[in-house]
Design a protein around this nucleic acid. Structure first.
Lengths: 135, 135
DNA sequence: CTTGACTCTATAGTAACTATAGAGTTTAAA
DNA sequence: TTTAAACTCTATAGTTACTATAGAGTCAAG
């Protein structure tokens, strides 16, 4: 199949597929006479694998590692487990940061009301004065 | 004062200050004979304002809007309020996405254990088979 | 007068795409 | 048979908010 069909089957854009090839995540094995990329079912599966990983916010570099690991089925899988643990930890940390940020934003928002002028705006006043807060 | 001193006073890198100038967030009003940028206390305050906004994850474009608004102190401040509300909503949404992602990652992680081979790896197996989940 | 610290501009790199330009290929209809 | 639409190709630039260079000029102290 050509790249357009692969794109449709995997719900991926054509440019993204070409980008993944450039990034060594999906190699094109064959080309047609007119130099069009040709793919088989294995490519569909690999691309879906990549998409599943991206849904988990894994980076392209992490995915590249996973694809490499998949090529040695006899090896131990603790590298995969460790990658997941690290990733979970990162997501956890980010959630905590955002929760703090949200509270900060909310309290800032409470410092103002409608019907005020820019000059009286509690938000701008707080942002203008020296705050001593860490993220 | 020259750019290095401004950088130190605001805990900002010299490059970042020059970048903010290029992005129209902080204009340099004066130059020395040797073409060095010169700043006053107002610049320190403006840069600190920008930093506070960045700590709240406001984008440079949003900050640019706020700086413009600050220049008409008599105007109504509901634009500021609305910007904050939108921003809070975005953070909220992102938190919810990340919480879902975390649960997804955790359940995926539970599908594997140490002491397995790549072939048996529950994580890779799940990622390989067709999943039907939305983000 | 030279050394070192500072500053200048311009350019490229980061992540993961997205969007274009300008060209060539294939398929279907007129 | 031609021609038009739809597809594909490569290469390049844009996105965000910086960071990191290169190569040159400026300034103060010893």
């Amino acid at each position: 199949m050509k790249i357009g069909e692969l794109a449709k089957k995997t719900d991926c854009s054509v440019q993204t597929i070409r980008y993944y090839e450039k990034e060594q995540l999906l190699c094109t094995t064959q080309r047609s006479d007119g130099n069009f990329r040709l793919y088989d079912e294995a490519a569909v599966e690999q691309l879906l694998f990549i998409k599943h990983c991206r849904n988990l916010d894994l980076s392209l570099s992490e995915i590249r590692q996973l694809l490499t690991l998949k090529r040695s089925p006899g090896a131990q899988c603790d590298q995969v487990n460790r990658m997941m643990d690290t990733h979970i930890q990162q997501v956890e940390t980010r959630i905590q940061e955002l929760v703090q940020l949200r509270e900060h934003l909310k309290s800032l928002r409470r410092s103002c009301s409608s019907e005020r002028t820019i000059e009286q705006c509690g938000i701008l006043q707080t942002l203008t004065t020296n705050q001593h807060q860490k993220r």
